[in-house]
Structures are given as structure tokens and as C-alpha cells.
């Protein structure tokens, strides 16, 4: 039963493809696998810990001021992530730019706080946060895989500054479809993926 709290976020109520929440970062930073990992890990961190704290405080916070209280809790964790990235991963922090502080207004996090963590005990809320965060990471990785592959003609696997090798498609990488790493490519890829998932009856 508790495992269900984790696994439902992966596919059944995937934040991006099913709930259509948190689209701004999913489209904006999915230029490369490295950026997608950075953003995904930041979101997992913030979502899990803010779910934990909100769940622990759920009987203390008055109902009328719950939204501002949730936002302050979330903003605290976002500031932690922002400062940590700036200190230890300056290049990643540079390329994610303004989208790191904007995790505060990412609808997934406030949405899970309101819909799940404010009503359920801490352990289940943590699992829910981990699951939804991982679902977000998987979705953004999928989008960025296609964008990086088509837009640069190869993939560079890197997680938080560590390189895990790379490959390029010969010939294609000399003249890749730059369209896909520009903003319109993001809209197109996510639209086609949504259509594909609907066609395959996954969502």
C-alpha cells in the first residue's frame, strides 16, 4: 500500500503528461540531459522535504493562511537549492538561471502540498513527494533526450557535473536540426509526445 503512494506519480498521475502541471521548467530547461537532471533533482529535493514539513505541520497551520505558509516553506527549500547550486555547481546554476528560483511557483509542488501532504501522515507524504518528483524527472528527461538528440546530433550524459560518456550520430551532428533546441522545438516535442501517449492509451 505505501508503495502505491510512490509509484502512482511515475505514470498514472505523472505531473507533466497527465496533470499538465509544472510545464514552465519542463519546457524551458529541457535543452540538454544535464540541465534536465539538475532541474529534476532540485524538484525532487524541494518536493520531498516540503511535503514532509507540511505534513508534520498539517494540524498546526490554520486553514485560512495555509497557502502563504506552504509557499514560505517551499521558498525556504528552494533558496537552499539555489545557494547550494551556486556554490558547488556554478555552471549548472548559470544555465538553469532564473528557473531555479521559479521552482517556488511550480504548480506541482503547491499542488501536492494542497492535495496530499496537508491531509496525510509524514511517511506517505514523503513517498508521494519522491514519486511525483521522480515522475517529473522521467518526463523532463524524455523531453530533453529528444531535444538534445535532434537539436545537437548527439547526447552527452552528465549528472550534476559528473560526465558519464557521450555519443554522436555521425553526419547528422554536422548539421543538426537546431529547431529542437529553440523554444518552438520544446512545444512541438511535448505536443507530439502527449499525442503519442494518448494514441498508445498510456495516459
Amino acid at each position: 500500500m505505501p508503495f502505491n503512494d510512490f509509484s502512482k506519480g511515475l505514470i498514472k498521475i505523472n505531473p507533466i503528461f497527465v496533470l499538465a502541471l509544472g510545464l514552465c521548467p519542463a519546457l524551458a530547461v529541457s535543452i540538454s540531459i544535464e540541465n534536465a537532471f539538475g532541474m529534476g533533482i532540485a524538484v525532487i529535493f524541494v518536493l520531498t522535504l516540503s511535503n514532509l514539513i507540511i505534513s508534520l505541520l498539517r494540524n498546526v497551520i490554520p486553514k485560512d493562511v495555509r497557502i502563504p505558509s506552504f509557499i514560505v516553506i517551499i521558498a525556504t527549500f528552494v533558496t537552499i537549492v539555489n545557494l547550494t547550486f551556486k556554490a558547488y555547481l556554478p555552471s549548472l546554476s548559470e544555465s538553469l538561471g532564473i528557473y531555479i528560483p521559479l521552482i517556488v511557483v511550480n504548480c506541482i509542488i503547491l499542488g501536492r502540498a494542497e492535495a496530499f501532504a496537508s491531509k496525510n501522515p509524514p511517511l506517505r507524504s514523503v513517498l508521494d513527494g519522491l514519486g511525483e518528483g521522480t515522475g517529473f524527472l522521467l518526463a523532463i528527461l524524455l523531453i530533453s533526450f529528444f531535444r538534445e538528440l535532434l537539436g545537437t546530433g548527439g547526447i552527452n550524459f552528465a549528472i550534476l557535473g559528473y560526465e558519464f560518456g557521450s555519443f554522436i550520430i555521425p553526419l547528422f551532428s554536422d548539421m543538426p536540426a537546431l529547431f529542437f533546441i529553440m523554444p518552438p522545438g520544446a512545444f512541438l516535442i511535448i505536443g507530439l509526445l502527449l499525442g503519442l501517449f494518448k494514441r498508445m492509451d498510456v495516459i
Binding site: 529547431f179 523554444p183 518552438p184 512545444f187 507530439l192 502527449l194 494518448k198
Partner: peptide, 19 residues
């Protein structure tokens, strides 16, 4: 087309607008 109805076609429209 059936599977593109709703949100998917909106994204594709947005893509052309963005271009």
C-alpha cells in the same frame, strides 16, 4: 486527428506561434 485533440494540438499550435 483523434489522439491529438485537446492539449496536444494546442502545444503544436503554440510551437508554430513561437517560431
Amino acid at each position: 486527428p483523434g489522439s491529438l485533440k485537446g492539449l496536444p494540438i494546442a502545444f503544436i499550435t503554440a510551437s508554430i506561434l513561437s517560431l
